[in-house]
Amino acid sequence: MSIPATAAFTATLGRELRIATRHKAEWLMPPLFFAIVVTLFALGAKPGDPQLAALAPSVLWVGALLAALLTLDRLFRGDLEDGWLEQVFVGPAPAMGMVLAKLLAHWLLSGLPLLLLAAPLALQLGFPSGAPLGWLLLGLLMGTPLLSVVGGFAAALTVALPRAGLLLPVLVLPLLAPVVIFGSGAARAAQAGLDPGGPIYFLAALLVLSLTLLPWAATAALRNAFD
């Protein structure tokens, strides 16, 4: 008996979202963490310092990165411990569809809230509203799925390791350096009145490349945890 990939995808996505509604605190903490980190930057700076607005893209991007890191360690760990992952690999449905569904669920639950919070936090830092804010959010809209996909790949690599929490940031952060560079680069270009097209296209290219290559690599890494 074979199960089509789409059915496996929707079933896994539904399962992930159902689990999330029953553990609300787990998904509310990262956005709260994001808000606190950004606020601490503002508190650390001189009140009303205009440099804070200049640094806002960088602060928001690094804050989003750190908030995404919080949830990554547990992304596949529970599934490994309760045996779900093993069933995925012995079962008839294509494993990559389910991995993709898990990554999409991770973005919906941890990336999307960050995106929604980013606009008020950017204004709090004195970032100009209007077109520059739009470019910042467009960058985050393309960048937060990248955090989930690249982070999910690193989480899959370290899923069977006892102390993955230490290794995971070291693996994820260098891979995400280009995302931060182009994402905040686009926002800074828009802030300075320049054309943010270049960095945005680079970000889009990274997103397309990662979406096609990394779910495959993450599936292979998860399979590696068993044999």
Binding site: L157, A164, D227
Partner: peptide, 23 residues
């Protein structure tokens, strides 16, 4: 770091291989 974290050498090598390709 990834190579050092695994106890099983073959699993370590395959994990490192995936990371090296992505990087």
């Amino acid at each position: 770091g990834l190579d050092a974290a695994f106890a099983d050498r073959r699993a370590a090598a395959r994990a490192c291989a995936l990371l090296a390709i992505v990087g």
